[in-house]
Design a protein around this nucleic acid. Structure first.
Lengths: 340, 340
DNA sequence: TTGAAAGCGCTAACAC
DNA sequence: GTGTTAGCGCTTTCAA
């Protein structure tokens, strides 16, 4: 049986109140008593009962993350890095991280509602925001603390971190155009993901600016997996006037694109240029190393968690919104457009 | 304010005792009362306060997973899949999943101890067991419920799931030998990881069986990242009598190995053969697709979680130990040994 | 079939 | 400075 505050009280002949306050370092307790309590606590190997504390304080010291899984085999390096960022920050600040996995849908939303109502967590972190994101609607209505990685198409009266995907894609387009590319294939994220819109907007706007005609840009929708990058690239390259540059909206799809191209005997970086987005660690060691847009996922996890904790603790009431400026990481997966 | 059991009691003019028992479907409560209670609960939108329940029941309905992170950028598809497997199973069985991230070391062990003593979780899942695994020692001594993915070099008196890595490597060696390879490079996992021993044992034993000399096998230790696969392959290929087959002990390192080889202008699958281990989804869409050993990570997560819950609930007291038989997934990253 | 009473382990308002 | 008392929301004897 674990020692309780009562055992300590008994041992030193004081009340539980005194012990509690000594342990929490209240200043209406004498130094001697505190010392006494601390010693007794150490001897008994006392550790507070978390659930009792939480019940009493009506807070859970827990942050909730519901990972939107897609499919049974959910293998995405993005999430392990994001979770690491959140997890390390949470524990440094004394919070637990409660992770659930749910496919987007009714069950997912029900899980949010339940966690809110049953006081399972003090706040949520939302990831991969969607167009008309019901999660955010629920959270906003409930007044429950949350922060998100990604913006949404509702009123942005909450705290978030996002990277400026529009700008990121403009960098990519500009770079490829400078290399002489005229026909582009785009492997877009699922269109219901909010960041998809920003990225596509960046592409279209920059294309317009550069005088690239709409029919020289073919956009096909992927699902962010390597597999879909592979399959879509095959479609793209099967077209009669196939693109010389393929813009994948994340690194995983870019890897798939490289495989598809290489399988056809094309040399990536000269016969065809391919770009990614995220700059996951793997992208540095692909063949060829991938030109991509940097997105500091670990740090975004850190920041978004930090912001949430500040809100939960009431250390700030202001809405914090951070839009990161992307940078292009040039490696060897792109080269001058081949002669037609 | 969320409705409590008290509100329900007041509303229907019964005591909290009755309500509690009705809600928990005790059979000393009349059907009518139960109906009444359920209706009132629904109307008030009642959801039990988790912390109160947990305090009272002295259990947390929570499973702990402490992910052994390595380095700040922790990007490993292995873990997202493993977490998905555990998470889905846990929630199906009514458990929460508490995830922490800790680099192996004292702080990590301290976290285990604290979580045990403060009743933060009901049991642990251990992943990536190590040689002389202090985590397992702590858990065994404390009598705290846990299961692991991976064996350990102590007395195996606990439940685990593991894949027979020795057998897996024998399959690889056999396959490569049959293709005519005579000189092998091995990119091993960190030697402190328990599975490293099994895999190396498989390689040595099969080599002996096939009459392959020890000096024809160079083993260099990686850290499971793509980067280390890349770097080690460069070392391997810099040797005067370089290997014609490179055996990477996980898929990520195999990808790195492919990049390094390709960067030197070697054709993977003919100039040099490369194998992996894990069969992560990506391995199907690399270029060339990777020959590897299947390891059903999602399903292992499911099983190990299921086993833990059975122990926690006391549904079984027996130790369950599952050793999965691996299978070789032959793709295009290997070919006949080139003429010397 | 139901209610009264106690208690899980902790904190906090208030009194002394 | 320290103790008294109450209570967080729930479950569970025990008695009626």
């Amino acid at each position: 049986m674990a020692a309780t505050i009562k055992d300590i009280a008994k041992k030193i002949g004081k009340t539980t109140t005194t012990v509690s306050r000594a342990l929490n370092d209240y200043d209406d307790i004498s130094e001697e008593t505190k010392e006494l309590v601390r010693k007794a606590a150490a001897e008994l190997g006392y550790i507070p009962n978390t659930m009792a504390q939480r019940l009493q304080k009506r807070q859970t010291d827990t942050i909730g993350l519901i990972v939107p899984t897609s499919g049974p085999r959910f293998s995405d390096p993005f999430f392990s890095e994001f979770i690491a960022g959140i997890g390390n920050t949470a524990s440094r600040r004394g919070y637990d991280l409660l992770v659930s996995t749910r496919a987007p849908g009714d069950l997912e939303l029900e899980t949010y509602r339940q966690h809110i109502r049953s006081h399972r967590v003090d706040g949520f972190i939302i990831v991969r925001t969607r167009h008309e994101d019901e999660r955010i609607n629920i959270l906003r209505k409930s007044g429950f603390p949350f922060t998100s990685f990604g913006r949404a198409n509702c009123e942005l009266d909450f705290s978030f971190v996002d990277e400026d995907g529009e700008q990121g894609m403009k960098l990519v387009m500009e770079y490829l155009a400078k290399l002489g590319h005229k026909r582009f294939g785009v492997i877009s994220p699922p269109s219901n993901l909010e960041f998809s819109r920003y990225r596509l907007k960046g592409i279209w706007d920059k294309a317009a600016e550069l005088g690239i005609a709409a029919h020289d840009i073919s956009i096909l929708e992927g699902d962010l997996t390597q597999r879909s990058g592979y399959e879509i690239t095959n479609q793209l390259l099967d077209q009669p006037r196939f693109p010389t540059a393929i813009i994948a909206c994340n690194d995983l799809m870019a890897f798939g694109a490289m495989s598809a191209a290489q399988e056809r005997g094309l040399v990536v970086g000269s016969d065809v240029s391919i770009t990614g987005f995220d700059n996951i660690p793997m992208s540095e060691y692909s063949h060829p190393p991938l030109t991509t847009v940097n997105q500091p996922i670990y740090q975004i996890g850190t920041t978004v968690c930090e912001m949430l904790i500040r809100r939960i603790r009431g250390e700030t009431t202001e809405v914090e919104q951070i839009l990161l400026t992307p940078s292009l990481i040039v490696r060897q997966s792109c080269g001058p457009a081949p002669m037609a």
